[in-house]
Each structure stands twice: as structure tokens, then as C-alpha cells.
Design a protein around this nucleic acid. Structure first.
Length: 676
RNA sequence: GGGCCCGUAGCUCAGUGGUUAGAGCAGGGGACUCAUAAUCCCUUGGUCGGAGGUUCGACCCCUCCCGGGCCUACCA
């Protein structure tokens, strides 16, 4: 039995999980579930990556503390992962005491090894945000062609390159302030001194995919490795460096250490010894990550681990990016789909299978083609796999499976033997190959049913035994397929366990046929995907194209959002409970005894009226309201008030007091229409 | 500006320095009706992005070009 520790890259706490992230978490989760299913001891840890300038600035813009921001985002991330059946053994945060502890430990090892050097760095500084800026965080007018709103390093329009100080009208991308030059001392790690080790480790021992090893050899290791800048001056959201007050560890220093910190939390919860997992040959460590962060994990991270005498990863599995319809994900096209949005429209099993069917052990990008997505789910999962149970189960509902496994022409044995190559494909992360082989088993099973014609057998009472046998074969082949698919489709495995009254706990359940068990009533295990559902998801994800030039001229204050920060995620179902309607105010009268209330009568068209008390007295005159359209909550539970019962609520923005702004629909809206 | 990856049938992808380049889906024809318009049988379809080169021989090696995606820009 292998003992395996698995990580996925830590998602940054500055944004929500989207379909691109899920390539990695699903790939990892499938691999982990496979390892657990075959009986290996496997622990899967992850955490939110919470430090850095971007978090600091976001928090300021939202008017909340960094801690609040990262706590909210962690909650959202964990909900998204759970929604996709991604099961971490521990999900931590880089802003944890455990992480600080391991950062200090590795840091002192780097110091002891004499690898830390100090150098002065001159950088652009944003005096308003009070923070240093990378070149990319400065924008201005291109000095060559005059194109507006270009980054501080080169021009997208004419391709010219320059330094940020050459930009005309340079501004901070965060605050719009004019940046200035400032110098500060930074701490660097001299990894050139570990060149021999890094060359050996990256080029030998199968720790990396071949293309990754080649890339490193050609791109980094052919020249002296530059010192790695691992500190940032205050203010910075992160951990202050103990022996360098006023300096903080750069987010990329403490992020991978978060793998250890998260493991530590798991160990503490389970009475495990941390050193058995990170300082022992008996544990294999596997990292899964995207190609953009290759060098952090294949040069700096091994260098840190080596120096601190901590276990090196056995394998770093690097994957490509997600494209949708062959293109980069786009917010304006609606292909930048958040995990939460997907879950409102589609079953997570669909995406799990689709990605599995496309993932290989290589670094290639993965394309999500939406038409193919629909076709593949309907054809493979519903048409081939679930169909097997669907066409056989009801014939044996009364009898259960045969007492002895009948002659099936060697089909079960063949598929059992296929389990070995399927398992190999899983273990090598070649899920595409595994899925192809599993579907081949499903094809053979459908051919078998076609040939055996249970629908003919059932018409002849003398063939009852034969009918039961045929269905026993069909259901066993189905179950075998479900075992093979269990890492990808855990819910299907559970449903199958219920149908056949036998849990699926181990890969080896695919090796012996199941006989003599009762068969439960068959219910649909997975619905076909309707293209309409996919369209709805894309429509829900589409954001109008932001015109950068125009956006720059708006100068909306961040205060309203800061005063009332965004609330937690609301699912579509929750939102759908609120029935918002267009309504016409047909009567409005003062309530003399009340200080804030007006009594409004709303028409939803036809005879439908709602009597509503609204707290807008003194802001709107009753006469001016009659005839206008508003948006109301039409299904709000009626509420008894001092002056009568209020049957709804009209929607308005503003802080209250004199600041109340009723919402109006655009022209053409009709009373009674629902707001979606 | 530097670099990486990809470009094989309509779509998504396998594939090996060597006989007639494969699969799934889609398309066409037929069968069946147990099943979520599912299944089964047969079948159309590719000058392997383009141009050179190496080789007895290249889709697979080299060069250049074109197209697509991505990373990075001296805090790699």
C-alpha cells in the first residue's frame, strides 16, 4: 500500500472559482479518489492563498479588513468545491499560525545555509494606496503611438516597449494616483548555489513531465539562476519576517508552504505525526498545478525543501489551461463561467466526466466545446452507461440477480482484465485513455443486451431463468463500469450501490460478479443535458463588454459598497424564491399618524392589487407617485403594521433618511411582468 | 521584446522513422423497440496547417512561414 500526500495549487483569495480552476481540482480529486479506491492511503490537502498586494487593495476598496475578505472568499471557495464533489481531507489558509511557523522554519534554514542576500530595489510607488507597484500595475499613454490606457511595459496597440517612467500621464492601476520612484531593501534567495541539485532533480528521476523538464533546461538552467526576491516592504498583507522587521515574505514564498501547514492541520485532527508525511521516505508527495506557476514549483520550491531538509515531491503534475470554444475564457462572451453559476444550471457530474474524458498526462490546454459537452454526456453517460441499467433493471426487480453468474461469453472476465490497463491510465493521469477504455466496455455490454434481447425473453414464461441471467450479466457489466467510473462519478457509484444493494468501496469490486442480491426499483440516475441549460448558463455568465476608455472616466466612489459590503452567495434557487414584479402605483396616500410611511396601492395588471406601506414619506410626494412604475417584491409574507397590513415591498436603493431612490423599469415594461 | 505549446476526417482527439493513417461524436443508409428520441449493424469522409530540407523512406526529425492558445518582460 502506498502512502500518498496530494496537493492542488492554492486558489487566490481575490476571486471566485471558475471552470478554469476546476480543471485542476477535478483532475486532482479524480486521481485522489482513484488512489483511495484501489486501497492506497491518500491524503488530499489544499488551502486558500491569502497574502499579497492584490488582497490588500481589494480589502481597502471594499472597506473591510483583509481577514474579513479572505474569510468570505474561503467560504465561497469551499462551497464551490463541495458543489463539485471535490473532497479535501483538509482545506486551510496560508494566513494560519501553522503556516507562519513553517515559513519561519524554512526561512531560518535558508539563513543558516547562507543563501539569503540583501539588495536595494527601486520601484514605482503608489502614494495613495501606500504600496509598491509592479510595471503591470501602472497604466498610461504610450509614448510612441499615443494609445491610451496602456501598461507600463509595452503597448498593446503598437507593440513598443519602454519603462513605466516613459509613459505619458502614468497612473496607478489601483488608485489612479501618479506613481513615484522609491527604493527599498529586499531580501533575495541565491538559488544559483543549488544549481547542481536543481539540475539533477529536474532532469532525472521522473519528477516532471518530459516537456516540463526540457522547458526548464532550455529556459532557466542554461544560464545562472537569478536571485529570487522573497521580501516586500511594509505595508503588505502577509507575515512579517522575524529577523527583518518592516519586511514581509512575498506571497509566493509562503504559498507553497501552505501545503505543509494544511497537512499539519490534518495531522493534528487525526493524531498523525507530521514528519511521517513531510520528512519520511514512506510518503509520496504529488503536486498538481497549472503551467503558469511551473517555475515556482520546480525551482524555488524544491530549493526551499532541499535546504530545510524536507521531503521533495515525487511528482509535479502540470496541466494546461482551459479554453472555451477554442478561445480564452471571456466575460463578455459568457464563457468565463463561475463554478457557482455552473451549479445553478448543470449537474457537476457532467463536467467531471467531460474533463476526465479530455485530460491527459501532458501539459496541453484543454478545450471545453459546449456542443461536444452536450453530445458527450448524452451519448456516453446517458446513452451508453446509465442506459444499461435502465434497460435491464426492471426485468429483475422481482427476482433480483441470478444465484450463480451465468455464461456471458467471457465479457465480464474481459472487462475485469481491462481493469488493469484502466487503472494504469488513471495512475498516470491519462484519464482520457481510461474513459475511452471504459466506454469500450459499455459498447460491448450494449451489444450483448441487443443480441440477448431480454424484451423478447420476457414474453415467454419458459424463458424466465434466461431473462434473469441476461439481466444479471447486463447489470454486472454496468456495475463494473460504474466501479471504473467511481473516481470520476462518485454519485453514480452511490446510486448503483442502492440499485444493486451492495456498496462500492474498492476497485476490486470490479473483479468479481455480484450474484443473488435484490434489485431495487430503477429510477433515472442521470438526466440528459438539454442545450437550453448550457445556453442559460452562458447567458447568466455574460457581462457587457467594459469599455476601458469610458470606464476610466467614471469616478464612482467606493463608499456605498464599503458601507454595505456584498453579502454571501445566493443560489439561483434562493433568488428565485423572491418574486419581483413590475407594478404600477395606482393610489398613494399619506398616513397622517406615521412619520415615514405612505400607503400605496400597487397594480399588477388586471384586477390584482397589493396594499403596501412604504417608508418613503418626506422623500416622495404621494401625488407624484401615482401612475409611475416600480419594482416590488410581490410574494413577501404579509406583515401587520400599526396602520394596516402591508402585502409587499417596493424596491429602492440608498442609505435611508432622505437618500431613497425608487427603482424604475425601462420603458415598455408592463405591470405584472416578473423581474428575472 | 523573449519564450512555450498546439495545428491529423465536420467536431474532440489517438498514433508510430517504414506495408492501404485510427477512435468517439456528428453526417448518410438500414434494423430494433427493453431503454432518458436511448441501442445495434453498415457506411461517407483526411494531399496528417503551408513551403523547403535530411533520409532508401516522414504525419512522426531539421529550417522557415502561416494560423491559434498561453506565459513572461529584467521583483524568471
Amino acid at each position: 500500500m502506498r502512502q500518498i500526500l496530494v496537493t492542488s495549487a492554492l486558489p487566490y483569495a481575490n476571486g471566485h472559482i471558475h471552470l478554469g480552476h476546476l480543471v485542476e481540482y477535478l483532475q486532482t480529486d479524480i486521481w485522489v479518489r482513484f488512489q483511495k479506491l484501489v486501497g492506497n492511503r491518500c491524503v488530499y490537502v489544499c488551502a486558500d492563498d491569502t497574502h499579497g498586494t492584490a488582497i490588500m487593495i481589494s480589502a481597502t476598496q471594499q472597506g473591510i479588513t483583509e481577514e474579513e475578505l479572505i474569510a468570505r472568499m474561503q467560504k465561497a471557495h469551499m462551497a464551490d468545491f463541495a458543489g463539485f464533489d471535490i473532497e479535501f481531507d483538509n482545506y486551510g489558509s496560508t494566513n494560519s499560525p501553522e503556516n507562519r511557523e513553517y515559513c519561519a522554519e524554512i526561512w531560518s534554514a535558508l539563513r543558516r545555509a547562507g543563501l539569503v542576500v540583501e539588495k536595494e530595489v527601486t520601484q514605482l510607488y503608489d502614494p495613495v494606496a501606500g504600496t509598491f507597484l509592479a510595471d503591470r500595475q501602472v497604466k498610461g499613454t504610450c509614448p510612441k503611438c499615443g494609445a491610451a490606457n496602456q501598461y507600463g511595459d509595452n503597448c498593446d496597440k503598437c507593440g513598443a516597449t519602454y519603462s513605466p517612467s516613459e509613459l505619458k500621464n502614468p497612473v496607478s492601476a489601483f488608485t489612479g494616483a501618479t506613481p513615484e520612484n522609491r527604493s527599498a531593501n529586499h531580501l533575495f534567495v541565491n538559488i544559483e548555489r543549488l544549481r547542481d541539485f536543481l539540475t539533477e532533480w529536474t532532469q532525472k528521476g521522473d519528477h516532471l513531465q518530459p516537456e516540463v523538464a526540457n522547458y526548464l533546461a532550455g529556459h532557466f538552467l542554461h544560464e545562472p539562476l537569478r536571485d529570487w526576491d522573497v521580501s516586500r516592504p511594509a505595508p503588505y498583507f502577509g507575515f512579517e519576517i522575524p529577523d527583518s522587521p518592516g519586511n514581509y515574505w512575498y506571497v509566493w514564498f509562503d504559498a507553497p508552504i501552505g501545503y505543509m501547514a494544511s497537512t499539519r492541520q490534518w495531522c493534528d485532527r487525526h493524531g498523525e505525526n507530521f514528519d511521517d508525511w513531510w520528512r519520511s521516505d514512506k510518503t509520496e508527495i504529488h503536486h498538481f498545478l497549472g503551467k503558469d506557476i511551473t517555475y515556482f514549483h520546480t525551482l524555488f520550491w524544491p530549493a526551499m525543501l532541499k535546504t530545510a531538509k524536507i521531503s521533495l515531491p515525487k511528482k509535479v503534475h502540470i496541466h494546461g489551461f482551459l479554453t472555451v470554444g477554442g478561445e480564452k475564457m471571456s466575460k463578455s462572451k459568457g464563457t468565463f463561467v463561475r463554478a457557482a453559476t455552473y451549479l445553478e444550471h448543470l449537474n457537476p457530474a457532467y463536467l467531471r466526466y467531460y474533463y476526465a474524458s479530455k485530460l491527459t498526462a501532458r501539459v496541453d490546454d484543454l478545450d471545453l466545446n459546449l456542443d461536444e459537452f452536450v453530445a458527450k454526456i448524452n451519448s456516453d453517460l446517458v446513452g451508453k452507461v446509465v442506459n444499461l441499467a435502465s434497460r435491464a433493471a426492471k426485468f429483475v426487480k422481482k427476482t433480483g440477480l441470478s444465484a450463480a453468474y451465468p455464461d456471458d461469453g467471457g465479457l465480464f472476465r474481459q472487462a475485469a482484465a481491462d481493469g488493469r490497463t484502466i487503472a494504469e491510465a488513471y495512475d498516470e493521469c491519462d484519464f482520457n485513455r481510461a474513459m475511452r477504455q471504459i466506454m469500450a466496455v459499455a459498447d460491448r455490454a450494449n451489444q450483448y443486451v441487443e443480441h440477448a434481447q431480454p424484451w423478447t425473453l420476457r414474453a415467454d414464461a419458459a424463458q424466465a431463468q434466461r431473462l434473469q441471467d441476461v439481466c444479471t450479466v447486463a447489470l454486472n457489466l454496468f456495475r463494473q463500469i460504474v466501479v471504473y467510473l467511481a473516481p470520476v462519478l462518485p454519485r453514480l457509484a452511490d446510486q448503483t450501490a442502492e440499485l444493486l444493494n451492495r456498496p462500492i468501496r474498492h476497485w476490486d469490486e470490479s473483479q468479481e460478479p455480484l450474484v443473488g442480491t435484490p434489485v431495487s426499483k430503477f429510477t433515472h440516475m442521470m438526466k440528459r443535458v438539454e442545450p437550453k441549460q448550457v445556453d442559460a448558463m452562458i447567458a447568466a455568465s455574460a457581462e457587457p463588454e467594459a469599455d476601458n476608455a469610458a470606464a476610466a472616466t467614471f469616478d464612482d466612489s467606493p463608499e456605498p459598497l464599503a458601507d454595505e459590503p456584498l453579502t454571501g452567495v445566493c443560489t439561483f434557487d434562493e433568488f428565485a424564491k423572491v418574486d419581483l414584479r413590475v407594478a404600477r402605483i395606482v393610489a398613494a396616500e399619506d398616513v397622517p399618524e406615521a412619520t415615514k410611511l405612505l400607503h400605496l396601492t400597487l397594480s399588477l395588471g388586471g384586477e390584482k392589487r397589493l396594499s403596501v406601506f412604504a417608508g418613503i414619506k418626506g422623500v416622495y410626494e404621494p401625488e407624484s407617485l401615482v401612475g409611475r412604475l416600480v419594482i416590488c417584491v410581490a410574494n413577501l409574507a404579509p406583515r401587520k403594521m400599526k396602520f394596516g397590513t402591508s402585502e409587499g415591498m417596493i424596491a429602492a436603493a440608498g442609505a435611508g433618511g432622505k437618500e431613497i431612490y425608487l427603482l424604475s423599469p425601462d420603458e415598455g415594461a408592463k405591470p405584472g411582468q416578473r423581474v428575472h
